[in-house]
């Protein structure tokens, strides 16, 4: 099946059933000039979920729904098995966020901001927060308004980790990080989920990082969820072929998702079947997330299969 979801999946890590961190059931939300349509997804503990899609696909709106900032028009959102209407404070206590916007008080220093917002969280650790600031090269006495975009996201990330959340929501953070910090960030994210009880949702359109660390991919376009799948299954289910166009066209048409012909040959994303025998002249590889995203978007926009 081309579009699969992992709703109702029975997931276990090291033989232990893992509680769903996030569960969305047929969620519909209309915002100004845009709507999310019937989104269903489930994210278990101990995983990094990449939320991908072109600009304006609805990634941020979906994150806002998961954060409880927006209420769904239809369907339900439950986080750690709880609803926002009943246990909003408990949910937010376990949730860390890094958003593109400036979230903190501009006129306070980093330390003051940490102390001010930290007191709302039951597990906030100021010592750990200051350690993280030092680790990320941020001076605690600096004013929040003086931070650059990248530094501001580092600060948000440090604060998010310092109150020990179970779920971390990140909205396109990596694009503003320098390469050195990006490595550190990815390492810290992996460490964050290492106990198998915490999860990360990372919305991005830069897919390089997801190739390296995401366990699940949810692909959105025009407010619709086209795909929500384990990355291993996803890679296993598709192949990228490069070579002569007529050799690709020998495969069943319904399995060719998108094909593009260039001056020096063609490339195509195909739905892989074990029975397929690929021509030896074709280069066969696992698709990267970027290639998957590109081909699926092209196909949705009316791109030809062949």
């Amino acid at each position: 099946m081309f579009f699969r979801t992992f709703l109702e999946r029975d997931i276990a890590v090291e033989g232990k059933a893992v509680e769903s961190m996030v569960k969305l059931e047929t969620v519909t939300k209309k915002v100004e000039g845009f709507s999310l349509k019937e989104i269903s997804m489930e994210i278990p503990g101990g995983y990094i979920c990449g939320l991908i899609g072109p600009n304006g696909a609805g990634k941020t709106t979906l994150l806002h729904l998961i954060m409880g900032l927006l209420k769904p028009d239809e369907g339900s959102v439950s986080i750690f098995g709880k609803n926002f209407s009943e246990e909003e404070a408990a949910i937010h206590d376990d949730m860390g966020v890094v958003l593109q916007e400036r979230l903190f008080d501009s006129y306070l220093s980093l330390k003051e901001n940490g102390a001010y917002y930290g007191r709302f969280y039951s597990r906030y650790e100021e010592v750990y927060f200051l350690e993280l600031l030092q680790k990320y090269g941020l001076e605690p006495g600096r004013k929040y308004k003086a931070l650059s975009k990248g530094e501001e996201l580092k600060f948000q990330f440090a604060f998010a980790l310092s109150h020990h959340p179970r779920l971390l929501l990140l909205d396109e953070p990596t694009g503003n990080f320098d390469p050195e910090f990006r490595e550190e960030f990815l390492t810290d994210l992996k460490e964050f989920i290492s106990d198998g009880e915490r999860s990360v949702i990372l919305a991005t359109h830069l897919t390089d990082d997801l190739d390296r660390m995401a366990d699940y991919i949810t692909y959105l376009e025009d407010g619709k969820m086209l795909l929500s799948q384990n990355i291993e299954e996803l890679r296993e289910g598709y192949r990228m072929l490069r070579g002569e166009a007529y050799k690709i066209k020998l495969l069943p048409q319904e399995n060719i998702i998108y094909m593009e012909q260039g001056e020096f040959g063609a490339k195509a994303l195909i739905e892989h079947r074990r029975r397929f025998q690929y021509d030896a002249a074709l280069t066969v590889s696992y698709p990267t997330i970027e290639e998957l995203m590109y081909c699926m978007t092209k196909r949705r926009k009316g791109g030809k299969r062949c």
Partner: peptide
């Protein structure tokens, strides 16, 4: 009020 306040662990009453 800062958007961050909407993300802090507070219920409607608080």
């Amino acid at each position: 009020m800062p958007k961050r306040m909407f993300l802090c662990p507070m219920n409607k009453q608080q």
